[in-house]
Each structure stands twice: as structure tokens, then as C-alpha cells.
Design a protein around this nucleic acid. Structure first.
Ligand SMILES: NC(=O)c1ccc[n+]([C@@H]2O[C@H](COP(=O)([O-])OP(=O)(O)OC[C@H]3O[C@@H](n4cnc5c(N)ncnc54)[C@H](O)[C@@H]3O)[C@@H](O)[C@H]2O)c1
Ligand SMILES: NC(=O)c1ccc[n+]([C@@H]2O[C@H](COP(=O)([O-])OP(=O)(O)OC[C@H]3O[C@@H](n4cnc5c(N)ncnc54)[C@H](O)[C@@H]3O)[C@@H](O)[C@H]2O)c1
Lengths: 221, 221
DNA sequence: TGTTTTATGTGAAATGGTTCACAAATAAAA
DNA sequence: TTTTATTTGTGAACCATTTCACATAAAACA
């Protein structure tokens, strides 16, 4: 079989994270009625370097105008396309406890096209109740309901002890992207994308920095 | 003044994050009654390489025994010392909304020595109320109460619109470490450590990965 | 006690990511 | 219209991190 002609560039994770940063900055610039922005100015705002901004963007195309900079609205749309947030994503959240309930109310997710459409829990008092217009489903029906609703991304907000078991079912249901809040190293097949949100880790970094007088190259994203 | 004889090695952020991972893994191994662990086995468990584990640890000393591996309890304590979590930290949380309330109930923080001792809000209905044994303070008294309670770390959980203003006051009160949940790029002086917890960014990574069939080098921590 | 096996600790090599520096393109000014 | 000022896009140089590979040391075993 002939190799696809499409170039498969290896984009670094840092570049992807910075695209998120550019997107957020451009949203603000749009609100502030800026028509164009130079890599220099954008870098200054986000404490990065102009070269970094240009190099990041150059992996995906030439979006600027020499002598002028980038059109704010246009670049924002380009980045949205690259990140895949110029569309709606169907998201389910499992575990409606402290953190799960907070996430359901997080408006930023919806604004970026991440729509929580299904909620699951195993607590009888929670099943059937209404959260932000969504009826909480019984975890027993996880697989069938995930499939039925065509869920593409699942957020895990259950205790660490049951997280692997839940994830196995989520994978079984064909979901390819998982955002995990449980402080545990989950096993998923190679074709499933997994990201972990670990808040203790960030506090531990602060602790380390204070104890060791750490001098970071720059503030973490 | 003579330069301190203490070596000031530049430890990478990735190394620090992996120390957190090792710590969590070792806690589990301790529970599972493992007496020793090799870099090979530890790496396998956390999907890292043995060389990586050894190199990370070697920045801080020689903690292992050739032919045997590392003593679980001993290494765990060493890492706790390196990360600065073999002590108690005095933490304050500002903004008792959705995410703030969830964080107050997060037991993992306490387990690692991060004790939330002060809560602040500007909502009259919340001020004076009791959350997990802590009376919510009026944001008006922020500076004086932060100083009085000797707060070392502040968690920001207020709307992005007011976050910079709040942070300015926190910095004014002499706090040197901030964990920020507001989706905004905060300005702090160079001697203040700032970490951002940005959940949209992780979802955006998943979105990017799915749209672009991204092949990461390895799963992000 | 001697031999074999296991596993650390660490320079050196390889890989990956960031910054430099400049040609090329366009805008702005003259 | 020509000149000057900006600013992009990108190889090349640089720097940081990861992996390799092996000398060294201790454990396990005979
Ligand atoms: N609270 C926080 O601020 C916070 C922060 C970061 C990470 N986390 C992590 O997020 C997870 C949830 O934390 P929490 O504080 O919200 O805990 P919680 O106990 O308040 O919530 C857990 C929820 O999961 C549900 N649940 C339990 N077992 C289940 C199952 N088998 N199937 C479906 N649902 C099930 C429970 O009914 C409950 O509603 C934990 O892993 C925790 O470590 C919490
Ligand atoms: N809800 C989530 O899951 C989530 C996730 C990630 C990040 N965040 C971010 O965390 C922040 C809080 O989000 P939320 O959903 O909890 O919002 P929220 O509105 O529920 O809570 C905000 C809290 O801050 C308080 N507050 C407002 N202004 C204040 C001031 N000047 N001084 C002191 N307190 C003040 C409010 O009274 C409220 O209690 C936002 O920046 C949000 O973007 C939220």
C-alpha cells in the first residue's frame, strides 16, 4: 500500500498547548476590537517569544501578512480549525460528586463546543435527578447509552478505586477520548486518547519550587 | 558575599512532575506491601523508561541498591522530602463557587499536607457560613487575614474577570505561591510561583488529537 | 567463598524543542 | 513611484531532555 501523500508532521504537545493559549488570547483581542496582531505583540501578552509563535503557526500554514501581522478573527478561526473546536463535541461525564457537579456547570466547556449531554452515577439518590437539564443515568446502562448518544469524549470524575473499571467499559463502548480526574494511572488501548487532570501535582510543583528555590525557565502554561 | 557552595542544578519541570508520579506509585506499592521496587518495574507501572526513573532520582542522590532496587518506604520518604510534602502547608482558597466548593472537599490535598485553612468570598450569603469546619471570610479582609494566618499558598477560584485584581492583593499580602483555576494569563512578580490549572486546554488537546490523528510520544502525565 | 545475576548510577549519544538570524514580502511613508 | 520600515516564515544553530550503554556494586546462589 502506498504511503499517504499527506505529510504527517510530529507536532509537539507544547505546540498544541500554546495553540490553546493563542486561541484564548485571540478571543480577548477580538473582544477588544483589535483587527490585527503581530507575533511580537501576541508573544508579549502571553509571555512567550515571537519566534515561538511564528514557528508554532508555521507547522500548519502561512496565516500572516508580512509587514502587518495576523488578522485576529481569521487566525482565531484557523486555530479553532486546527484544534478541532470549530465544531460541537458530544461529551459524557461519569460521577456526579464534588468535582463532577462543578464541571457540569462550567460554562467555558460549552463555549468551546464541548457539550455535556449525558451524566452517569451509581448513587440511587442521584440517578433520575436533573442537573442543568440533563437527567442522570444509571451507570448500569453506561455502554448502551454512550453508544446510543454517540458520545465522543468521556470525563471521569469517579473515585480512583473504580476508575479503571469504568474506563474499561467506556473503551468497550467505543469512546476514543477520555479526560480523567481520578488520581490514578489508567490503562487504555493505544488508539484511545487519555489525558489526566492532576491538581495535587500542581500543588506539589509549588511546594517543590518553594522548598528548592526553583528557577523555572518560564511559567508553566 | 560568597556564592553558596550548594550546587544549584536546573531540574526540569518534567522531572518534578515525574517525582509526583513516583510518589503516588510508591504510596500504592507501600499499600500493596512491596518492600523494594526496581527502576524497571516502576517504569513499567507508570509507562516510563527505567533510565528515566534512574536519571530523575540521580539528580537528588543515590537512593537505590545495585542488584536489588529501591526500598519503597525509604524512597517514598526521600521524594516527599524533595517535593516538600513531608510537612504541612498553609493554604487559602478564594471563591467558593462550583469549583471552589469541590476543592474544599478534596481529601487528596489534605493527605499530601496541603491544608486549606482559610476561605474567602465576596458573596454576603456565603460570608460567615461554615464549609468543612472553616468559616468563610469576607474578601475585604483578604490581606490582613492572609498575613495573620501565615498563608503560604493561595488557590484562585474566582471568575476570570476579577482574578487579576484578587491576585494583586494576594501578592501584596506576601504570598509566594498561587494555583490558578481562572482561564486567564495572570501577571505576578518574578519571585511569586504561579501555576495554572486549565481544563479546557486538556479537552482541546483531545479534540486536536482526534481531528489530527495525533501520535503522541507518550501519554501526558 | 567464588561465581553469576541483577540492577544502579552516569557519562556520552541521540533526539527533540527553542531561539536566532535573515531573506522575502508587504505596508507605510516620502 | 520609490524608499524605508515592519513583520512573516523558516533553515540552521543552539540548548534541553531522553535514551543508550556500560562500569560498578550488591544480591543471590552454588
Ligand atoms: N473534589 C475535588 O476537588 C477533586 C479534584 C481533583 C480530582 N478529584 C477526583 O475526582 C474523583 C471524584 O472526586 P469527588 O470529590 O467528586 O468525589 P465524590 O465522592 O464527591 O464523587 C464521586 C461520585 O462518583 C459516583 N460513583 C462512585 N462509584 C461509581 C460507579 N461505580 N459508577 C458511577 N458513579 C460512581 C459517586 O456516587 C459520586 O457521585 C476522585 O477520583 C477524586 O480523586 C476530585
Ligand atoms: N466550574 C468549573 O468546573 C471550573 C473548572 C475550571 C475552572 N473554573 C474557573 O474557576 C473560576 C470559578 O468558577 P466557578 O464555576 O466556581 O464559578 P462560580 O461563579 O460558581 O464561583 C465563583 C465564586 O467566586 C466568588 N467571587 C466573585 N467575585 C469575587 C471577588 N471579587 N472576591 C471574592 N470572591 C468572589 C463568587 O461569589 C463565587 O462564589 C472561574 O474562573 C472558572 O472559569 C471553573
Amino acid at each position: 500500500m502506498v504511503e499517504s501523500s499527506e505529510e504527517k508532521k510530529r507536532i509537539s504537545e507544547s505546540t498544541i498547548h500554546r495553540l490553546s493559549i493563542y486561541y484564548r488570547a485571540l478571543s480577548l483581542l477580538e473582544k477588544e476590537k483589535h483587527e490585527t496582531i503581530s507575533s511580537k505583540e501576541l508573544a508579549k501578552r502571553e509571555k512567550l517569544t515571537p519566534a515561538q509563535v511564528r514557528k508554532d503557526l508555521s507547522f500548519f500554514g502561512s496565516f500572516g501578512t508580512r509587514g502587518l501581522g495576523y488578522n485576529v478573527v481569521e487566525l482565531k478561526q484557523k486555530i479553532a480549525g486546527i484544534l478541532g473546536i470549530n465544531r460541537q463535541w458530544r461529551v459524557a461525564l461519569i460521577g456526579l460528586g464534588n468535582i463532577g457537579s462543578a464541571l457540569v456547570s462550567y460554562k467555558e466547556f460549552v463555549r468551546q463546543g464541548f457539550n455535556i449531554m449525558k451524566l452517569f452515577d451509581n448513587d440511587q439518590r442521584k440517578i433520575g435527578s436533573n442537573h442543568k437539564g440533563i437527567i442522570v443515568s444509571d451507570i448500569k446502562n453506561l455502554e448502551s447509552e454512550l453508544k446510543e448518544a454517540n458520545i465522543e469524549i468521556v470525563i471521569i470524575a469517579v473515585p480512583a478505586t473504580v476508575a479503571q473499571y469504568i474506563v474499561d467499559n467506556v473503551v468497550e463502548a467505543g469512546v476514543k477520548a477520555i479526560l480523567n480526574f481520578a488520581p490514578i494511572n489508567l490503562r487504555v488501548p493505544p488508539d484511545v486518547y487519555l489525558r489526566n487532570e492532576n491538581m495535587s501535582m500542581e500543588l506539589e510543583y509549588l511546594s517543590f519550587a518553594m522548598v528548592n528555590n526553583h528557577t523555572p525557565k518560564r511559567v508553566k502554561i
